[in-house]
């Protein structure tokens, strides 16, 4: 049961998006949930990706991913019309949506992708939305227009100052938290280190904060426990207990170590893939 890519585009240097046929997932998918993807049923690995959008009419889901290793690079090399071998989902618990009042949504880098459907759902529930989007540089900022459409206020930060304010999202977040009245709720999604720093900020201001975690997974259904984190001193499975958690209770330091568990092996795998692709390219073009 392969899944056809209906359309695919590049959002920035290393970030891509695709609408993929996944009729069986559309019916149940809700904001905050994810899928597990594999590009090869025999030898591929299984990686979790957030469902960034759903199109019930076409029976497609939208995925957004960053090219960081072998599988994400392979996905990036696929074109419209190609197929993805396996898509499982929707997995994880949906985001708890209610009218909190004033909500601040913080998206760092690729974290903007999972944040978008959550922000949309929050807006529909009547919340006043302040969005803070951050990226290293203007060229890799994604989904700005989409967020502008649904937010009451938007603040953009770039590490290098090439767009919006120079600085980190955590600084803008602190500023928003200092306002009176302060936000009733925060949603923070992005790299682990960014979520950690943002949670330190919101903790100081006692603003309840949901984070969405993207740990290493195999099955995504609670069977392996590879995705476990330390939450309030106890183990929790991101795939079935999450992916969203109260950010003030997550042990981010340990989570970051676990995310780096296979760093060297992942690098090897990616290098091998790049070499392999080069070879095919040379063969096709008759070059070398």
């Amino acid at each position: 049961m392969a899944h056809k890519i209906i359309s695919k585009s590049q959002l920035s240097e290393d970030v891509f998006t695709a609408d993929v046929e996944a009729g069986h997932i559309v019916r149940a998918a809700k904001a905050g949930q994810f899928v597990i993807i594999s590009v090869n049923n025999e030898f591929g690995e299984r990686i979790p990706l957030t469902i960034a959008g759903v199109n019930p009419q076409n029976g497609t889901i939208k995925i957004i991913w960053q090219r960081v290793g072998k599988t994400t690079a392979h996905l990036a090399d696929l074109k419209g019309g190609d197929s993805i071998a396996a898509i499982v989902g929707p997995l994880g618990r949906p985001t708890h949506i209610e009218n909190f009042g004033a909500v601040v949504c913080v998206g760092g880098g690729i974290g903007a992708a999972p944040l978008l459907p959550i922000a949309k759902a929050l807006k529909e529930a009547g919340n006043k939305i302040t969005v803070i989007l951050g990226a290293r540089s203007k060229s890799i900022l994604i989904l700005e227009d989409e967020f502008r459409k649904i937010s009451d206020e938007i603040i953009i930060t770039t590490d290098d100052g090439s767009y919006g304010r120079k600085g980190f999202v955590s600084e803008a977040l602190a500023e928003v938290c200092r306002r009176t009245p302060k936000p009733n709720q925060a949603f923070v999604i992005g790299p682990a280190i960014m979520m950690k720093v943002c949670c330190e900020v919101t903790k100081e201001f006692a603003v309840p904060t949901q984070v969405s975690l993207n740990t290493i997974m195999v099955d995504g259904t609670g069977m392996c426990g590879g995705c476990r984190i330390e939450y309030d001193g106890k183990p929790k499975f991101v795939c079935v207990d999450g992916p969203e958690f109260d950010g003030h209770k997550v042990n981010f330091d340990l989570m970051m170590k676990r995310l780096a568990a296979y760093k060297e092996m992942e690098k090897t795998s990616y290098e091998q893939y790049k070499k392999h692709v080069c070879k095919i390219y040379r063969r096709r073009t008759g070059d070398g």
Binding site: E45, C224, G226, K257, Q272
Partner: peptide, 30 residues
């Protein structure tokens, strides 16, 4: 939850189903 601690389910699934024993020789799962 330290790095290097597995449930047997995870360890065996990686090795059996995902063929991690062939990592670097065709299989992608470490």
């Amino acid at each position: 939850s330290f790095v290097g601690v597995y449930s047997a389910n995870e360890y065996l699934t990686r090795a059996n189903l995902m063929r991690a024993y062939k990592f670097g020789a065709g299989a992608d799962t470490p």
